[in-house]
């Protein structure tokens, strides 16, 4: 569990300068990669036929990247039990319902 909003945010306090920077470069590279993959997988990706395809995929990537920063600013430290509640009792059933609806649409 990472505690970014707290003064002692785990191992990050034990490093300074460029060593600390390497951890954060790694984290941000990870975030950018995830944003690109999410934009391709969930938001339709890159449309080569369109003139502004490059612009739109940039905006999609920027949206996902901003979403991560936004969520981190809004809920700096979600308690683990709250996170479990959200994932198991809210997102998991919604995903199941989503599968059912998709199956129905394919069937009909």
């Amino acid at each position: 569990m990472e505690h970014e909003a707290e003064v002692v945010s785990g191992y990050a306090t034990e490093y300074s300068g460029m060593r600390w920077g390497m951890f954060f470069i790694g984290e941000y590279a990870n975030m950018i990669t995830i944003s690109i993959i999410a934009a391709i997988v969930f938001l339709g990706g890159y449309d080569a036929a369109s003139t502004f395809g490059w612009l739109f995929i940039m905006l999609k990537i920027a949206f996902f990247f901003f979403l991560m920063l936004w969520v981190r600013a809004a809920w700096p430290h979600v308690r683990p039990d709250q996170l479990m509640w959200l994932c198991w009792k809210v997102l998991m059933p919604l995903a199941l319902v989503n599968i059912l609806i998709t199956a129905l649409v394919i069937l009909l």
Binding site: W70, V71, A73, A74, V90, P93, L94
Partner: peptide, 16 residues
């Protein structure tokens, strides 16, 4: 009820 209340989005709105 809590699932469809969207309280988490209220938090996002405050930050925005």
């Amino acid at each position: 009820k809590r699932t469809f209340k969207g309280d988490l989005f209220a938090g996002l709105g405050v930050i925005m």
